[in-house]
């Protein structure tokens, strides 16, 4: 099941390093607000989802996710968001948020028949806005599928399980 840890992570150090570098570069492009470059790291059939979590079970997190998302993007929808940020009127990001994506606990699964790797990582995302000394902090587990495309890695799927149910953000105008 999706939420489980990878049972047999790869022991190929070079591959692990390639995937780790890919995740780092991708996060740095978001934090540097180079969204048009970031978009190029996505496959055409991208799925980018943040399902809504709810505290449901008394004893388990198994049933935590609702049939609803905070974000449910395809490449088309992601491009719309980036195009909006590129207009003069994207008020929710004016002035722009300062984000810092910290990616850790990376695990890479073995390559499958579709030239894809299952990649899991933890996310800690720090958000600072304007002159507000307070910050917003989100944490979550990312379940990615990374694909080999003509010798490069691209992100084909990302499902982010945030650890909050009620979000401490008033809006998601950043890329998580």
């Amino acid at each position: 099941m999706q939420t489980e840890p990878i049972s047999k992570p790869v022991d190929d150090i070079e591959l692990f390093h390639r995937v780790r570098s890919f995740l780092t570069r991708e996060a740095e492009l978001i934090d540097a607000r180079k969204f048009d470059d970031w978009k190029e790291l996505m496959t055409e059939d991208l799925e980018y989802k943040i399902p809504v979590r709810a505290t449901r079970g008394e004893n388990t997190h198994e049933d935590d996710f609702l049939d609803m998302h905070h974000v449910e993007d395809t490449k088309y929808r992601l491009e719309k968001r980036i195009n909006r940020l590129n207009t003069e009127y994207s008020w929710s990001e004016q002035p722009p948020s300062r984000t810092r994506h910290l990616i850790s606990n990376v695990q890479v699964g073995n390559r499958d028949a579709d030239d894809e790797y299952t990649v899991k990582s933890n996310l800690l995302l720090y958000v600072s806005e304007g002159d507000d000394p307070d910050h917003k902090l989100l944490s979550g587990r990312r379940h990615d599928v990374v694909r080999e495309v003509n010798g490069s890695l691209k992100l084909a799927r990302r499902i982010i399980h945030l650890d909050n149910t009620t979000l401490p953000l008033d809006r998601i105008s950043i890329f998580i």
């Binding site: 609803m68 449910e72 993007d73 809006r171």
Partner: peptide, 24 residues
């Protein structure tokens, strides 16, 4: 319909996200 809602309204909706800064 759900995907259209998520894209335009709600927490990440491209319409709704510009309202919040005004109200706060």
């Amino acid at each position: 319909s759900r995907q259209g809602y998520e894209m335009a309204f709600g927490i990440s909706g491209m319409i709704e996200q510009d309202d919040l800064g005004n109200w706060s």
